[in-house]
Computed example of a mutant assay.
Amino acid sequence: MKYLILSDIHSNIQALNKVVDNEKYDRIIFLGDIIGYGADPFLCYKKFLELGGESAMGNHEYGVLNPLSLMNFSENARLGVLHTIKNLPEEYVNHMRNLPEYIQLDDCIFCHSMLDQPLDFSYVFPEDKDSIFLLASYRRMSELGAKIMFTGHTHKPCIFKMTGNEGVEIYPSKDGDIYLDDKLYIINVGSVGQSRNSIPKAHYAVYDTDERKVSFKSVDYNIREAAGRIEEEGLPELLAKRLYLGI
């Protein structure tokens, strides 16, 4: 089985289309934040549903459903969610209500953020190997019988490997393959629609369960068009500029 794993699309239909057209896979799983920030939430959610509609709940979906949570958002993020609310039909919002906190398939878990309290949407960045949220996620993985968790949220791809006695090793990810041993892994696949690792591309991962191989990948997409759409919709200029910079 080859899983195509996508996170943080953020209403960037240009990036989403390019990734899906670029890959061969058996099943596609989203890790949340299909919407928010970008110009085209309707087109992205429509495409997501056409691709099977399997996703964990992201904090931007949660913001659409629970507007009080927008108090914890930055101004740019809040404006992106409000733009989404104006542009999504009721049937899409109703589908969004049923997104799970996480998806478990055999020994794999797919979750937007950390696993212990998924709807708290805690941030664990690549340098945070001693994070209490990371260690709590490993403990929850063990309880669920999972060996690997795929996550997003920070927009920064990386690999966390549990080495024993709650020791964690961190590996920065570059495009390429890694083969997993019998340790526990938490793997951030990065962002399709709004990269923040200074590489302005669409980032994602493919997991081959037969080979236990994770392939980190990225593709160029039409940033000019995506940024232009943000400007057309009257969203903050920064949201367009950062696509060119990958920050």
Rank of each mutant, 00 (worst) to 15 (best):
D106K: 15
D220T: 10
Y185E: 04
F30I: 14
T163P: 02
D208R: 01
M96N: 10
F42K: 13
K46L: 09
V124L: 12
S191K: 01
G193M: 02
G52A: 10
H112F: 07
S113A: 15
I9P: 00
I132D: 11
L70M: 15
R140F: 01
L99T: 08
E90P: 02
R97Y: 08
M96H: 06
D116E: 15
H10E: 15
G53Y: 03
L70H: 04
A146M: 07
A240Y: 02
L16V: 03
P100V: 14
D8F: 02
I223E: 03
N76C: 09
N188Y: 04
N87A: 10
G52I: 09
P67V: 11
G145S: 08
P236Y: 00
S113D: 12
M114W: 05
C158I: 05
V19I: 14
Y207R: 02
T154Q: 04
R139S: 11
Y179D: 12
H10Q: 15
S74A: 11
N12P: 01
R212G: 08
F42M: 11
L99V: 11
S191N: 03
V81S: 10
Y3G: 04
E225D: 14
I148W: 01
L105A: 08
K183T: 13
N12Q: 08
M96P: 07
K217M: 14
F121H: 05
S122Y: 09
E61D: 12
T154H: 02
N188D: 15
G58Q: 06
F48I: 05
Q104R: 09
K217P: 00
G63W: 01
S131K: 05
K2I: 12
A202W: 01
Y179P: 01
T209R: 00
L51D: 06
E237W: 03
M114A: 13
E143F: 06
G52H: 10
M141I: 10
I29H: 04
L70G: 04
K47W: 03
V189S: 09
M162F: 12
D130C: 10
G246V: 12
G167E: 14
E231N: 11
M162D: 15
D182K: 13
I170H: 14
P41R: 13
S215Y: 03
H153A: 07
D26L: 02
N22R: 08
Q117Y: 11
D8V: 07
I9L: 13
K24R: 13
S69Q: 04
E211D: 07
L115Y: 01
A56Y: 01
L88G: 05
I186M: 14
Y207V: 07
R242K: 11
K2C: 04
G32K: 00
S198H: 07
D177A: 13
Y171T: 12
I5S: 06
Y62M: 08
D175Q: 10
L184M: 13
R242N: 13
L115S: 06
G38Q: 03
I103F: 10
K18F: 01
Y185P: 05
L43G: 05
L238P: 00
D40R: 03
F216G: 00
Y138I: 06
M149C: 11
K18Y: 03
E169P: 02
